[in-house]
Amino acid sequence: MSDYNFAYLDEQTKRMIRRAILKGLAVPGYQVPFASREMPMPYGWGTGGVQVTAAIMVPEDRLKVIDQGADDTTNAVSIRKFFQRTAGVAVTERTAEATVIQTRHRIPEVPLTGGQILVYQVPIPEPLRFLEPSEIETRRMHALEDYGLMHVKLYEDIARHGAIATSYAYPVKVEGRYVMDPSPIPKFDNPKMEMDAIQLFGAGREQRIYALPPHTRVVSLDFEDFPFEASKADHACALCGAADSYLDEVITDDAGGRMFVCSDTDFCAGRRTGEVAA
C-alpha cells in the first residue's frame, strides 16, 4: 500500500485531470483534451475511466465497478481490485451504496442520486469520427455547431435499414449545444442521462474528458417522422421477471436454447432478494 500514491496517480497528474473535469462540467458535452498517462493496463480496458476515477476519489469513497452491467466480469473485477490495492477504498456491488461507480457500456437500472458520480469508460469520444476522419475538421464542426453530418448518419441508417439502426453509442445533443457520444451504452439508457448524479467520461487513448453536471438536458438526435425510441429486447428477465430492464441474451446449450436476463446484475439480484421493489 505504501508503495503507491493514493489511487496510483501522483498528485500533480490528479490536479491536471481535475482541471479537465471541472472544465468539462463547466462546458457540458465539450471534449476537453488532457495529458492521458500510461496506466498498468492496455488501452481499451478503461484507462480513461480509471484515470478519472483516480483523480476524483477520496479515502471515504465506496467504489462500484461494472462492465456491461455486471460486477463480476474480468474488467470490472480487475479495476475494482486495482483501486482496492492502490487506494484502499471500500468497494460494493450495490448501486445505491456506492459513491463512485465506474462503468463500461451501461447505466445502472436504479436511478442514481445527488451524491453519486458515474464514470464512463469511453473508447471513441468523437461522435463525428466515422463520418469525418479529420480531427481538425471535427473540432471546427463542434466549435461552429456544424452538425448536419450527424443527421446524415441517421439518414443513412433509415435509408439502409428502414429505421434508425444505431442501437448503442447513440448520439445526443447536450443543453442544445454540443453533440456528444454517450460512450457505447445501449440507446435504452439514453433517457437516463438526465439524472441527479454527476456523469464523467474518460477516453484514455484519445486523451479526452467530457462531463454532464446533474440535471443537464440530454436529447437523443432523431427525425420528426422517425423519433428516437429507447428499445430493448421484447422479453421479461428470466431470473427476476423484470419487464422494464435492459436484457442480455444468454445462449444456454448447443441446441439453440437461450434466455434473457437483466444486464444489471445488482438490480436483478436485488429484485430476487426483495431489496429492490418489483
Binding site: Y155, E156, I158, A159, E224
Partner: peptide, 25 residues
C-alpha cells in the same frame, strides 16, 4: 462524401440547415 449514399450526400446541406423530416429530405 464517398462513404455516404447519393441521397445522404444530397440531403446533407438540408440537414445542416435544420431539416428534420426524413421523408421530406
Amino acid at each position: 462524401r464517398m462513404g455516404v449514399s447519393a441521397g445522404g450526400n444530397v440531403g446533407e446541406r438540408l440537414m445542416a440547415v435544420g431539416a428534420r423530416n426524413y421523408g421530406a429530405i
